[in-house]
Amino acid sequence: MSHLAQNLINGTLLGGLYALIAIGYTMVYGILRLINFAHGDILMWGVYFALYMVIALSMPWWLGFIVGIVLAGLLGFSVEKVAYRPLRNAPRISALITAIGISFFLESLAVVVFGGIPKSFNIYPKFFNKIVIFNHLRIQMLTFFILGVTFVLLFGVLWLLYRTKTGTAMRAIATDIPTTSLMGANVDNIISLTFIIGSMLAATSGIMWAMRYPQVQPYMGFVPGLKAFIAAVIGGIGSVPGAVVGGFILGMTEILVVGFFPNLAGYRDVFAYVILIVLLMFRPTGIFTVYSEQKV
């Protein structure tokens, strides 16, 4: 029983991390119909920013994390402005290839700037490593921290999207760009804001990821990024609540399968891909259908 509860907690934790990354994918896809391949790499850069703020500029850990997250937002903003905006009216495949190029660029730049050797991410206070015991359940303080931050951010994003004017504009742009601009919304600014928010959420997730698996390397964004994209597809791409649900489904599945079939641990990453492929075959629109199959 406690084995199950332990796994459920871990699954929620991983799911929350996926959900935060997936929101950025789904918002960008919703507006630009673009798989932002560089999303995972912006996450990686956010983690490096935070690490260097604390190590090189000797900021307190919380300030370093916040500055790192803000810088990641800035990076997302620049990527959109430099690389994606000129291609907004180009064929979608060109935009996708460019996104792959940006991803490759950010990874190579990280290798050049930070070096390819993994660095340890032990800059957070030791307090987070303390373990609390609730009838046989061993829970790290870090778990509470990550769960707390994740849920605050998730509700924050949903509030922004569904209860503010900016959020309404974002959702409107996802439906129809020309009409929204006729209604007086500044499309370019809203798209920039989408990239900033998505990148900051991804960086937050990445930093918490690095706290839990305390290692940083230039390719660390690829697998979480790909899986978060899968989470977005599970939830129905374009739908933010869908991305959150998809993230939790994916995280939970991974942890439970490995928890109960430990000899499948080597295949852990395969589950997400198999879920994706099965889903694409039978229900490509995901749980929350936003875009149905295009009719001629």
Partner: peptide, 28 residues
């Protein structure tokens, strides 16, 4: 055979997922 049922960037992601599956199966 299964991937070509979807189009566009979904096809790209499906084939990427298959390539990763091939790689992980080789690895294990």
């Amino acid at each position: 055979y299964p991937s070509l049922r979807v189009t566009g960037d979904y096809f790209a992601i499906a084939t990427l997922a298959f390539a990763e599956i091939i790689r992980i199966v080789i690895q294990n």
